[in-house]
Design a binder for these strands. Structure first.
Lengths: 206, 206
DNA sequence: GGATGTGAATGTCTTCACAGCT
DNA sequence: AGCTGTGAAGACATTCACATCC
């Protein structure tokens, strides 16, 4: 498969959301211009993005909503569900466990871990917080597809190493450090303070 | 000022974090190669990034840690503090109010709003949840520098319009839709389900 | 010697513009 | 007529490589 840019993948996700919304409204076809409006881009960009995967549009008409949505789900790997493990039962970790947007899309949080004895044994949304010491044994029994790291910065790399060693191939990192992983493991980082800093930069430079 | 790429700004934030860490360890100079290691990039990239703003390095030596950190704080607009208002007192909104990473960097959450009468009047970390109906009046009295939108998708655009109308110039959006704002307002979006989808894409395409 | 600063080369992404299909 | 699909052009970002300075 040709290499697809990260930015393209993000736009595909946005298109899919709009397609699902559109389908709910009973539309059966949609133009690249409509998709562009919603995705915050241009119609040419939309067509380029979609053309990577073949041509499903009809000239003069647009794209078939249902078919295109199905194809995007395919491309994005959303035909299946994913087992998610969350490491870190702080406020953000707890919020993520209960975030409805995950389950809706087939991302099921199956376990949450912490090292703090005060938190271990408590429940978040019915899910028992387990001691992080059980991580490896649990993953051996039931592998996780994706791990979400929500530990303090100083624990994140160690936890990551353990996850990688246990065979996890995809990590979503909320800790404010840059994680190091082997090249067959994918990491995406979300750094909220950093997002605020790009805003303060924008405010300061006008 | 020349136009600085978004990606450059994000790296500057990372450099700053490492510089502060480095300063804590007593280092007085640092090379572009060291900064690169931490920022997940190359030494040439670091030098390019920094050279946009002048040349503070010493050839053969590296960059003076304290001076460079101060300069980056300047550039990123971090010499001052920012008043943050959070709209939406759900789990994520609540977690953000208490997130220590914000206050540490001068981002002070000064108010949190919700429309749900059950939430209004409760406290998050000592901060009273106010009825979103007070938003405009409150902002008139005490303007907010940055707003964080953590409402459900269907309320986000309306809240955004009200924020913009009340003079807010920077918005961090956690709602899973693309917000429309006038060109003098900056929006950054964080979409956690979308991040997971880039991971599922990566897992599906290997 | 060692590391910066930077033009030039390369690589990547986006936009243009139009031929071609329905 | 309307809208896709796509080469070509353009804009932007990264990497190379080396002269320059401490």
């Amino acid at each position: 498969m040709r290499k697809i840019a990260e930015s393209t993948v993000r736009r595909l996700s946005l298109y899919l959301r709009f397609l699902e919304h559109s389908q709910g409204q009973g539309h059966t076809t949609i133009s690249s211009a409509d998709l562009a409006r919603r995705g915050g881009t241009t119609s040419a960009q939309v067509r380029k993005d979609l053309s990577f995967f073949g041509s499903f549009g009809k000239r003069g008409l647009g794209y078939p909503v249902g078919e295109l949505a199905a194809r995007l789900r395919d491309i994005l790997g959303l035909r299946r569900t994913y087992r998610i493990v969350v490491i870190g039962a702080g406020r953000i970790g707890g919020a993520l466990v209960q975030y409805p947007g995950f389950r809706q899309r087939g991302f099921n949080v199956s376990a949450i871990y912490d090292s703090d004895p005060k938190k271990v044994g408590s429940r978040w949304n019915g899910l028992l917080v387990r001691d992080v010491g059980h991580l490896e044994a649990d993953l051996k029994r039931e592998p996780g597809d994706i791990a979400i790291v929500v530990t303090p910065a100083d624990a994140a790399q160690e936890v990551t190493d353990r996850l990688v060693h246990a065979g996890v191939k995809a990590i979503l990192n909320f800790a404010p450090i840059q994680l190091t992983v082997p090249s067959d493991v994918v990491v995406k980082s979300v750094n909220m303070a950093l997002e605020l800093e790009t805003l303060s930069f924008a405010l300061a430079n006008r």
